[in-house]
Computed example of a mutant assay.
Amino acid sequence: MNSPIHDPREAVGSVFSLDAMLHARAQTMDAVQRIAAVVQPGMTEQQACDAAKDILDGMGMQRIWHQIIVRFGENTLKTFKEKITPEQTLGSNDMFFIDLGVVWDGHEGDAGDSFSVGDDAEMAACAEAARVLWQQTGQYWHQHRPSGEELYRYAQTQAEAAGWKLNLDIKGHRVSDFPHAIYKAGSLGSFDACPNTGLWILEIQIAHPTRPFGAFYEDLLVAGEWPTRQASADVPAVTALTQHAF
């Protein structure tokens, strides 16, 4: 994972620093949690995005490199490319997710997480399943050095085994010192080599098989973290629908 970068799709700029990437990552995930704490039933997606912008400004962000995404309810099934629905309101028993792309000190942070409000057990399970599937897939990358293509085949198998639908229109992407887009790397799920550490965002978006909601989680793939991020060497099984009665 720490081998020199030779593939032009993994090129970085002269100011690139892995430490700076880790800082951007930490700041962005912190922002996701801060924003989630102020989201409440009755709020619209636009109001949540406005609150997110205020929080990011207060944290001293350099700039936003992709639009702020906050999705409520059935909109949690939408992809990044689809616009938010400004008037969509969060219900008292509902799902939402936050997806941020923020530049800190010239480096791109990209983080996303899902949350449920109220007492719907399947919604809570869906949010947790996205996080655990991300961890399971990330550990597979760490241990087996698969290509990006193989990584998403693995994620799909694990999601289906637990009863969730993996959205394969969302397959991860490059990040770097800003802007990564000049490197034309394509998606992580189309990358035919083992992705290097600190350069790729693993995105997981799942859907409930019968109800109109889903969950999203994304984070930076970083080598060397997995033994310390888990309580044991084995990642817990993906939260399965069979744990909750329909």
Score class of each variant (00 low, 15 high):
residue 210 T to I: 01
residue 5 I to Y: 11
residue 44 T to A: 00
residue 59 M to E: 09
residue 187 S to L: 14
residue 104 W to K: 06
residue 1 M to C: 08
residue 192 D to L: 15
residue 21 M to T: 04
residue 109 G to F: 08
residue 103 V to H: 04
residue 50 D to K: 09
residue 176 S to Q: 01
residue 33 Q to Y: 15
residue 195 P to D: 07
residue 95 M to R: 15
residue 100 L to V: 07
residue 78 K to A: 10
residue 16 F to E: 00
residue 236 P to M: 02
residue 218 E to G: 03
residue 151 L to N: 04
residue 131 R to V: 15
residue 46 Q to T: 06
residue 208 H to E: 08
residue 84 I to L: 11
residue 105 D to M: 11
residue 226 W to R: 12
residue 111 A to Y: 01
residue 195 P to K: 13
residue 45 E to W: 04
residue 125 A to L: 13
residue 6 H to W: 10
residue 62 Q to F: 04
residue 170 I to Q: 08
residue 50 D to P: 05
residue 75 N to G: 10
residue 106 G to M: 00
residue 145 R to C: 14
residue 19 D to P: 06
residue 55 I to E: 00
residue 199 L to A: 06
residue 18 L to N: 09
residue 8 P to W: 04
residue 11 A to R: 04
residue 230 Q to V: 01
residue 234 D to A: 15
residue 163 G to P: 12
residue 145 R to W: 13
residue 213 F to W: 02
residue 31 A to N: 13
residue 102 V to W: 03
residue 171 K to W: 05
residue 244 H to Y: 15
residue 10 E to W: 15
residue 51 A to L: 12
residue 51 A to Q: 13
residue 124 A to P: 03
residue 144 H to G: 00
residue 118 G to C: 14
residue 152 Y to C: 00
residue 127 A to T: 02
residue 38 V to I: 14
residue 129 A to V: 01
residue 13 G to L: 02
residue 67 Q to E: 09
residue 140 Y to G: 01
residue 219 D to G: 04
residue 224 G to H: 10
residue 136 Q to S: 14
residue 113 D to F: 13
residue 160 E to Y: 11
residue 112 G to I: 03
residue 28 T to A: 08
residue 75 N to A: 14
residue 158 Q to W: 14
residue 210 T to W: 06
residue 183 Y to I: 08
residue 24 A to Q: 04
residue 241 L to Y: 03
residue 108 E to F: 03
residue 66 H to D: 14
residue 197 T to E: 08
residue 150 E to Y: 01
residue 98 I to N: 02
residue 169 D to W: 12
residue 154 Y to T: 05
residue 215 A to Y: 10
residue 41 P to L: 06
residue 22 L to S: 07
residue 163 G to L: 15
residue 123 M to G: 03
residue 7 D to E: 05
residue 173 H to S: 05
residue 167 N to C: 14
residue 52 A to N: 03
residue 194 C to M: 12
residue 215 A to W: 08
residue 103 V to P: 03
residue 242 T to G: 04
residue 57 D to E: 12
residue 37 A to D: 04
residue 177 D to A: 07
residue 55 I to M: 03
residue 103 V to K: 00
residue 219 D to N: 14
residue 191 F to I: 00
residue 93 N to K: 07
residue 181 A to T: 13
residue 166 L to V: 10
residue 150 E to Q: 15
residue 1 M to P: 14
residue 13 G to F: 08
residue 49 C to A: 15
residue 215 A to G: 14
residue 67 Q to F: 07
residue 89 T to A: 04
residue 192 D to H: 11
residue 147 S to G: 07
residue 238 V to I: 02
residue 54 D to V: 06
residue 105 D to H: 11
residue 34 R to W: 07
residue 178 F to E: 12
residue 157 T to H: 11
residue 212 P to R: 15
residue 106 G to R: 02
residue 9 R to D: 09
residue 189 G to K: 11
residue 217 Y to R: 15
residue 72 F to I: 06
residue 159 A to F: 07
residue 132 V to E: 09
residue 153 R to G: 05
residue 235 V to S: 14
residue 95 M to D: 10
residue 86 P to N: 06
residue 70 V to F: 09
residue 104 W to V: 06
residue 21 M to P: 04
